[in-house]
Every structure is written in C-alpha cells, then in structure tokens.
Design a protein around this nucleic acid. Structure first.
Lengths: 165, 165
DNA sequence: ATATATATGTAATATTATAACATCACTTAC
DNA sequence: GTAAGTGATGTTATAATATTACATATATAT
C-alpha cells in the first residue's frame, strides 16, 4: 500500500518537500524528452502546495498574483493536460479540480481521499483494490482499462473523535 | 455481488422492464411522500432507457421531442437532483452525465462500468470493495462517508476477444 | 541562420450548472 | 369550496468549467 497520507495529514517541511518534488519532475520531463516550462512548473507547484485540489480558474487567479501577464484558460488547460499525461497531476472528477500526484512515475491506480471539511486530498494506491476490481469486472465480462476512485469523508485532523496516528 | 450487467449487456424486453421500474419508482415516491411528476417521470424514463448516461442538456433535447413546451435547464437539474436524492438516478462524475439506478431503494455503494466504445454503463455493488476501502481508509485515519467508483473499459459486446456470458 | 517542432497568446464560444424571483398547481384546513 | 401554505415549475440571467481555431513566439536541431 502506497500512500501520502502522513505527508498530507501531518506537519512537514513544505519547502524542502516541494523542492525535491520539483526536482524529480524535472528529471521525469528530461527522461521523457519534454519541457517543464515556467508556466507548467508554476502550475505544478500550486497543485503540490497544500495538498488541496484547485480548479483551472483558481489556478489562473493564483498565477496572476505571481506572473506579470495574465494567463488565459487555454494555456492553463494545456499545462494541466501536459502534467496529467506525465502522471505529475491527477484530475479529481467529482470536484472538477486538479491535484499534484505524490508518487509520479510509479505505475499505480489511485484512490483519492477527499476531506469534506478541510478539502485536503490524500492519495493511496493498493494492489488489492485493483485485483478485486479486476475479479469483479472479469466475472461480468467487462475488460477493465482504467479507473477513478474518489472517497469522501473526514481526514484525521477533521475527525472529531480521536486525532491519533 | 449485485449487478445489472446481464440486463445491460444482453437483449431483453425493454418495455416490460421499464414499466416495472417506473411502477417501482412510483411506489418509492409514495412511500417517501413525494411526487413523481410527469417531468420527473419523463426524465427518469430517459435515464433508464438504453443504459446510457445522458447529460442535462441531452435530456432537454430529448424532452423537447416529446413535450410541447421546451423545458429549461433549472427544471432539468431540479428533477435530476430529486431523482438522485431518492436513489433512482446516479451521477457519473467523469462524464458529467446521469444514469438510472437499476436497484434503487437497496442501500448500496456503486461501481460503474463505463464502456469506452458503446458508452453503456452497468452497475455493480460488492460488499468486498466497501470492506476493503474501509480497511484502507481506517489504516490512515480517514473516516469514510461515501464513494465514487467509475471504471472504464470495454463491455462484453465491444470486447473483440470473446463475446460469451 | 534557418527550418521544424513545440509552446503560448488571443478571441470567441461551447458546455455544464446555478441563482433569483415569479407563477402555477397541488394539498390541507377551515 | 375557498384561502393559506407548500411544493413544483417557468423565466431570465449568469456563473463556472472547458474547448476550438488560428496567430504568434520560443526553443531545438541541422
């Protein structure tokens, strides 16, 4: 089971982690022979910060604060598509929003845990889920290609009961 | 494991099934003390026919063919919301579309199998998936409330290999 | 230095969804 | 049977999300 739950739910050195992630993103792009341009990198950073999903127009607003020139929707959407194709970003369909992938380059199918209170999104990948879904779809003759699993609930920090872990 | 896969993937008496379903919908509404108005019923029928998800504006177009007066988006969306609240209809987030629920009134969390070729959507409910997701989320301290599972692939009729079952 | 491919700019518009307020239609109580 | 109250729909406008088409700019390789 692969997850970024600790990272999301516990305090950590944001800057160091982010820099490491960006550095890895550059490596991935280099390996794929594609360019991580300033706009793309800026968007990726935003989608990695705070572990909160952001919509395209929200990204646009944030970018406006940094960049001198306003960036139009097509550029945003193109950058998002680029990052998704590389596995650096995921789309959260139920929110029409996007979030940075904590473990890019690793082949995995994701389960997103979306906190209904603080909006953080943590990701977990578990082979057992895939195996089970394979078994279920096999049984009815459905050939599984890809999947979207989005879970709603309360993260440890927002769950009133106990805040252990 | 509860599924409508056979119903979706194999030929069947559309009219009879649909009438039975509508009849059950009326019962459900009566039990809940709410009204299944003509517009709501028309939309429900459309979302049960063909086992294909339809968008709100697609529904609007289809309704225009039947009804004399055109029905505006708010009415469509209100009817959809009504039907979803009753469990008669589900939203497919990844398609921004809606589909009739084959087993309303039964408490279940759904897995949707979306055919990438013919667009049919079959539904399956399996307790093992829920149990597994509960276990996984428990482990990281996430309190699971609800879920969205959307699978993409090829239905038995579109899968080139074998068309058994 | 030029040709090519890649990325972004720009304007317009498509698609999906909702807000605000008016009207209509059913239900219930008197 | 009518008025009051609730629930449903009509109407207009608009918000929010996403894409198309075409022009321009920037980087890369020859």
């Amino acid at each position: 089971m692969l997850t970024n739950a600790r990272l999301v739910y516990q305090p950590h050195d944001q800057v160091r982690i982010l820099n490491a992630a960006i550095s890895r993103a550059h490596d991935i792009c280099e390996a794929a022979n594609v360019r991580l341009t300033p706009t793309r990198e800026a968007i990726l950073k935003l989608l990695w910060q705070g572990h909160q999903p952001m919509g395209a127009y929200q990204l646009q607003q944030q970018l406006a604060k940094v960049s001198e020139k306003p960036i139009a929707p097509p550029t945003i959407y193109r950058a998002i598509e680029f990052l998704i194709d590389l596995g650096l970003v995921h789309r959260i369909h139920s929110l029409n929003a996007y979030i940075g992938c904590p473990f890019p380059s690793s082949e995995h199918s994701n389960i997103f845990m979306i906190c209904e209170k603080c909006n953080t999104v943590a990701e977990v990948s578990d082979k057992r889920v895939n195996n089970l879904l394979e078994a279920i779809t096999d049984k009815v003759g459905f050939k599984l290609h890809s999947q979207t699993i989005e879970l709603f609930g309360l993260c440890p920090n927002c769950e009133p009961g106990d805040s252990d872990e």
